[in-house]
Simulated scan of single mutants.
Amino acid sequence: MELVRQWGDTAETEAVGAFWRWWSVAGAGLITAAVMTGVYGDLPEMIGAMVMAIHPELRWETGPGARSRHRLCVSGGGDPRLRVLAERWRRAAPRPTETWEFAAAREPQPNMLTGTLEGLDQPVDLGLARIAVDWDPRRALAELTVFHPAFKGMGTNDCRQAARLLVDWLLGEDDVQRWVGAVSVTRTDPRDSQPAAVVPEFFQAVATRTADPRWTMREAKTSSGHRVIVCALRPLRWVDHPLLDLHTAVRVRYRRTGNDGLPDDGLPDGEALLGLLQLEKDLESVLGPRGRMVASETSNGLRVLHYYSDSEDQNGRDSFDRFARSRKDVQVDHTHDPGWGRVRKFI
């Protein structure tokens, strides 16, 4: 079993608490005055040091708010490990005010398309960018191909950097994680490309159609000929539950069909299947809202239930362990897994 680091025992907790104590005592007033006057002094370095104390790779920025006048954002740049920390920072924040709201990921900034991206091989007028969207309905993910006339005179790395910034500004960090599987660049305009500015409308429509994940089932066979039944929620998106960073594999042995004189395909017989369904119900009642099952695999006498929970919630992990101790046919393994890498094969 992999040891899981406890959020409550780490320096990050103290750093988050220190940030919000500073904010309540002096920070909110200082940064409000700086935004209004444009005089920041050493405030950026001060805030940067406090954010980096949570994790050295976190970054912060301010911008217009959606409900408040200003937004303070701490971002992990799309890294699932850092997204967890940014979310914990946000959830520890005071209530939003008329002046300030708080975010754990960069929001879309479509107004950036009216500007020019500097600092690369040559300036990039973002308003001229075009994007081709290749949508995979089975995976509910898109591959984006970004074209810009300036790419013809730019190196590949600069093209990729410009494309990535453009997509982040169009969709925001979380929607990039949610809907985009890959971003590539091209120096010739794809036949099915469209102006970059209209691409967010496509993903808004996608979000409406796929608002509620649904259970799907697939079947395959192992090399030994045993059937494998995989059930999984789709779309399967860790970014919709950024604090559920602890993967728990619940392994359940069951009675196979061959035990009844029937051909043994490795799947449970009728009585065993009813027992497995009841076990899932019992586990759900024990966990309550603390754990979320996202997939299961059934094959060759073993069912594996894939759950995610909050690694900060010791009671959640203990609930799994107590459940396993009470049943001789159940084992559990815990793995720290922000980004849900353990179930990526089911996407």
Rank of each mutant, 00 (worst) to 15 (best):
G17H: 11
A150G: 11
R322G: 10
V183A: 07
V4L: 00
V167T: 03
T208K: 12
H241T: 11
P289D: 14
W23F: 03
A142M: 06
R130L: 02
R237I: 09
R187D: 08
G341T: 09
Q161P: 01
R59M: 08
G261N: 03
S296P: 09
L302Q: 08
H334P: 06
A105Y: 04
P338W: 04
D333F: 13
R21V: 13
A324Y: 00
V343M: 02
E219L: 08
E280D: 12
L267E: 03
G258D: 01
D318C: 03
R59E: 05
W340E: 06
G155H: 02
L276Y: 00
V84R: 00
A11I: 09
G341I: 04
R256K: 01
A132W: 06
P96D: 09
V228A: 10
W135I: 00
L273R: 15
A33M: 07
R322A: 14
K345Q: 15
G261Y: 06
T10S: 15
R256T: 11
G29Q: 10
F19L: 05
L141I: 05
W215D: 08
V228D: 07
T116W: 05
G181T: 00
D282I: 08
L267T: 06
L117E: 02
Q109K: 12
L274W: 12
R5G: 15
D121Q: 05
M293C: 12
G29D: 06
L128F: 15
H55P: 06
R95H: 13
R237T: 13
V230A: 09
D9C: 11
T99E: 14
Q278I: 10
L279A: 07
G77T: 05
A220W: 13
D245I: 05
T145H: 02
R95T: 15
R342C: 02
V133M: 04
H334E: 07
V206C: 12
E2I: 13
R325C: 11
Q122A: 12
V199C: 01
D168F: 10
T186A: 07
R292P: 07
A196M: 04
F19P: 01
D192K: 14
